[in-house]
Design a protein around this nucleic acid. Structure first.
Lengths: 340, 340
DNA sequence: CTGAAAGCGCTTACAG
DNA sequence: CTGAAAGCGCTTACAG
């Protein structure tokens, strides 16, 4: 059933070498021979074996996909799934397939990303960054395998990384509050160990200062990006002596949790101004619809693919890119200027 | 840097064959030799080449993932992403990695799932079913490569499939309407070519009949599973001479669209009873929270993995499984009995 | 324009 | 308990 090059060669009455040259588009093969062989390959549905090819060539046309870190970098994470989806499409158009490493056996001490990449001989890989990244990621990044990081800073000899300009994320939120007449803002961050959360907090503080806005220290609290933590932190904020009216939560889920907390306290949600982050589907559907900062998932996925391709082809070496976020204004900040 | 078995053998002062036996856990190797070689492999981070191994062995420990059909079966589809996520975890625990085929080059006439599976020599594959499935899927399913289908009926010699009991999906919805005192129900289906939509419609009609409920023919309409189509179809329903008060939409997004249509018409949403399907995140957050029929994504993904494993090991041949859905009662059907 | 031969990194009877 | 040798399905100088 499954044919080999040898059988095709015999059928065509030529040597293996000739068939191989046709497969690999060498131009020193006679037209008639070529046509005959091509027809035969087509007829028998012949496809050269990946294993044999990759054993002798260096190229595999396979990209490894790694979700690094124990938290927030999962296959079904709503942000990353969009990024990876676009990445997959873009790489797919170039003929690459994606190999997703499972790390369920990772407690086994000898598991190691570099080894696995070498085992499969992938042409390159994409690393999705979560929190508490395994040290073995670094061995991979320092190797000569091209790597592109998303939301993780990679500094290997053939690596790059890409992420949203998180400073700008906060800038947009703070600016929008400022233009809405808010003068005091609370901040609900993610885990304190999170690179993303830290960048956004830094941007938040700087920008608030630049606009002369107040950000009392006890109005800066931390959740874990999920809804319940937003609910809990908002309740804490509402217990303070002075309570905030403007809240920037660095994930939509936390913002939604915060809205729920406000309602559950019997307060009027219309008297609060809330901004989230991500623009998940639910953001449009909560009451009131949530103003949010959207990351350009599409661009991130697409650029990650382009950069990785350039890295693989040796067109570039180290590189990094920040992608601009967008402000999406909805009613949770009380008005509808430029609503999308 | 990247070692071969030959180098390890030389370092250890034994033959390749001996090293190979150690890698493959043959038990006829001396303890001391084994330990020495193992230590060496560890020290040098040696990992046998996938290509070389798979060339000579039949097993690859790689599973192909195929999103078949042009519609509704995407990498980032909210339902399938959960299913595949659990599938990945379960297979991962067994040491399998997942290879996602890209089908961006698919217009190229010679693309063919069977060929690609053979090319990579995958141990088996999972096929996610959408609409308008490519005929080439059938060649794969009829081959001797084990296949497990999700939301697609597969009848190959070594294949199985799994999906929610769609008849039961409708049964739960109809029953809930019946118990809420509704006596006339409208139905918003998906594309008419959709297997899932057809099963649900069939179940809906049968069960409504069994309960003696009215389902006027012009109250049975079709969208495309997305929000806007629900909005549009609901508007059509509201133009009828007699308009429905109870609506079963076979996706949450369409249900949410329908709710929006009702509100936009200036009608009181509280006078309608609406049931969706899927239990997406937004279902909890719309006003009023949406009653829905939840599919057990986790179980589907897990069972798909178990079945595929059994298929690969030859423990079973053809098989199929229906998974029970759950009714999640929220306020869109007017009361809160047994709310989750 | 075509083919013989070596080699890619492994595994597996087989012989000792 | 260990190793020499053939073979898995390809590609690539090289010679003709």
């Amino acid at each position: 059933m499954k044919m080999t090059i040898k059988e095709i060669a015999k059928l065509a009455g030529v040597s293996q070498a000739t068939v191989s040259k046709i497969i690999n588009n060498y131009d020193d093969v006679g037209m008639k021979t070529k046509e005959r062989v091509l027809a035969l390959m087509d007829e028998h549905g012949y496809r050269p074996s990946y294993a044999a090819q990759s054993l002798v060539k260096k190229v595999t046309k396979v990209i490894g996909v790694i979700y690094a870190g124990k938290i927030n970098a999962n296959f079904n994470h709503p942000f990353f799934v969009e990024v990876v989806s676009t990445f997959k499409k873009t790489m797919g158009a170039e003929g690459y397939d994606l190999l997703f490493f499972s790390n369920e056996k990772f407690h086994k001490a000898d598991e190691n990303y570099l080894q696995r990449c070498q085992h499969y001989n992938v042409d390159g890989c994409i690393i999705i960054g979560g929190e508490h990244v395994e040290p073995s990621v670094d061995d991979l990044v320092q190797s000569d395998i091209p790597c592109i990081g998303v939301d993780i800073q990679l500094d290997g000899p053939h690596s790059g990384y890409i992420m949203t300009d998180n400073n700008q994320v906060s800038a947009l939120a703070v600016e929008h509050f400022y233009l809405s007449g808010q003068r005091e803002i609370a901040f609900i961050g993610g885990a304190e160990s999170s690179l993303i959360s830290n960048e956004r907090e830094k941007g938040f503080r700087e920008r608030a200062k630049a606009y002369g806005l107040q950000t009392p220290d006890d109005w800066i609290v931390y959740g874990d990006f999920f809804e319940d933590s937003g609910y809990k932190q908002m309740n804490e904020l509402l217990k303070k002596e002075r309570t905030p009216r403007a809240i920037f939560a660095i994930s939509d889920l936390m913002a939604i949790g915060a809205m729920r907390a406000i309602k559950d306290q019997g307060l009027d949600i219309r008297e609060f101004a809330i901004i989230g982050c991500d623009d998940i589907t639910a953001a449009r559907h909560v009451e009131p619809p949530l103003t949010t900062i959207r990351q350009d998932k599409d661009k991130i996925g697409r650029m990650a693919a382009y950069i990785l391709k350039d890295l693989i082809q040796g067109n570039i070496e180290r590189t990094s890119l920040k992608v601009e976020p967008d402000l999406i204004v909805r009613e949770s900040t009380g008005h509808e200027i430029g609503s999308v």
